[in-house]
Design a protein around this nucleic acid. Structure first.
Lengths: 208, 208
DNA sequence: GTCTATAGATTGATAGAC
DNA sequence: GTCTATCAATCTATAGAC
C-alpha cells in the first residue's frame, strides 16, 4: 500500500499515473523523471499520460495540491482541539510528523519539488504552506499567553519546529529502526522542550 | 561576495564556472540546470566548461566535496573544544547553523542535490555526512554521561538537531529578518532545550 | 584555452490508426 | 482511451579552427 491519499482519483488509469509519478518524483526528483518513466511504471505507453494530464507539471501540481491539503488538514485538526496549548502542540507535532513519515514519498515530493511548479501553481501551494505555519504559530502564541510556554521568538521557533517535522520525509526509510508512531512521539516531546515546556526526566509522566 | 569557499580553486576560469554552477544549482536544482546556463553565467561559451570539468556531474561533485568538508570542519572544531558538553553543543549548533545560513547557496546544493551524484561520489559524500552526525551524537552522549543532558534517544535526537540545522539552508533568504548570527544563537538555545538542558527563562543567564 | 559548429541521444508532447 | 510512430526542441559532450 503505497499511499491512500489519492484513492479518490478516477478513472483508474489517472490514479495509476499519479501514483507512478509520486514514486518517480520522490526517487529521482521532478526534472530527472521522464514522462516515459511515469507511463512505464503505470504500465502504459508514453502517450497515454497526455489523455489524463495536459503536462508533466500538472501531475506535480495535483500531487502537491492533494498532498498539501492532507498534511494541512492533519495539522490543523490536531492543533485545533480544545486541549491546553501543550496538549495541542504535542498532538499537532505528533500527527504532522507521523504523516510525513507514513507518507514519506508523497511528502518528499510535496516538500522538496515545489520549485518545479509553474509560477501560479507555486504561489497557490505556498499559500497552503503559509496557513500551515500560521496554525502552528498560533498554538505557540496561545501557550505563551497562558504561561505554559517560554519562548522569546515565536516566529523563529515555529520555523524551527516546522523544519523538524518536514525534514522527516527526507531521511525517513520504511526499513529503518523507528516506526512513524515512534518518531511522532519523540518529536512531540522535543517540540515541548523547545518551547520551554518539556519535562526534565524522560520516560515518566508529563506535568505532574 | 557570493562565497569564499572556493577561493582556492584555480585557474580563474575553473573557479568562475564553479561559482556559476553553485548559483544555478541552488536556484533551479542540478537536473534543471543546463551546461549552457553555467557557462553563460561564467561569461564563457558552452564548450569552455569541458576544458575544466569532464562532466556536469563533476562540477556537482567538486561543490559537494568542498562544501561538505567546510561544514564538517566547522562542526567538528566547535564540537571538539574542551568545554563542557552544553558549551560544546551550543557552540556546534551555533557554528553549523551560521554556516548553513551564511553559505546558504552552497549549503543548499550540498544538502539537497546529493542524489544527483554518481554512485561512487554519492557514497563518498555520504561518508562525510555520517562523520558529521557521529560527531554531534558524541557530544550528546557525553552530556548524558556527565548528567548535563536528559535524553532518552540520543540517535533520534541527534537526527532531529541535524535536521534543524541543515534545513536552514532551504528557507534562509539574505533579505529576511534574521542575520545568520541571530539564527545560530536561537538554534543553539533550542538545541540545549531539546536535550533537557535549556533554561526556563529566556533572555537571562544560563546555568546559574 | 577559448571559440563556432555540430554530432548523437533524449525529451515533452502530438498525430492518427484502432 | 490506448496504442505506434514521430516531430521539434533541447541537452550533454565533442571536433576542429584559431
Amino acid at each position: 500500500m503505497p499511499d491512500e491519499s489519492f484513492a479518490g482519483v478516477s478513472p483508474d488509469a489517472a490514479r495509476r499515473l499519479l501514483l507512478a509519478a509520486v514514486e518517480a518524483f520522490a526517487e529521482r526528483g521532478f526534472h530527472a523523471t521522464t514522462t516515459r518513466d511515469i507511463a512505464g511504471r503505470a504500465g502504459m505507453s508514453p502517450a497515454a499520460l497526455y489523455i489524463h494530464y495536459k503536462t508533466k507539471e500538472e501531475l506535480l501540481y495535483q500531487i502537491s495540491k492533494v498532498g498539501h491539503e492532507r498534511s494541512v488538514t492533519t495539522l490543523t485538526e490536531a492543533a485545533g482541539s480544545t486541549e491546553s496549548a501543550p496538549g495541542r502542540l504535542a498532538s499537532a507535532v505528533r500527527s504532522f510528523v507521523h504523516w510525513h513519515a507514513a507518507h514519506h514519498t508523497t511528502a518528499r515530493v510535496v516538500q522538496y519539488e515545489l520549485a518545479a511548479l509553474g509560477p501560479e501553481h507555486y504561489t497557490e501551494i505556498l499559500g497552503l504552506r503559509h496557513r500551515c505555519e500560521e496554525t502552528l504559530r498560533q498554538v505557540l502564541e496561545d501557550g505563551v499567553a497562558s504561561g505554559d510556554f517560554r519562548v522569546s521568538d515565536t516566529r523563529g521557533t515555529t520555523t524551527a519546529i516546522m523544519s523538524l517535522c518536514v525534514d522527516v520525509s527526507r531521511w525517513y526509510r520504511p526499513e529503518g529502526r523507528r516506526a512513524p508512531e515512534d518518531i511522532g512521539e519523540l518529536y512531540a516531546e522535543l517540540a515541548l522542550r523547545m518551547v520551554g515546556c518539556g519535562q526534565a526526566h524522560p520516560g515518566g509522566e508529563r506535568r505532574s
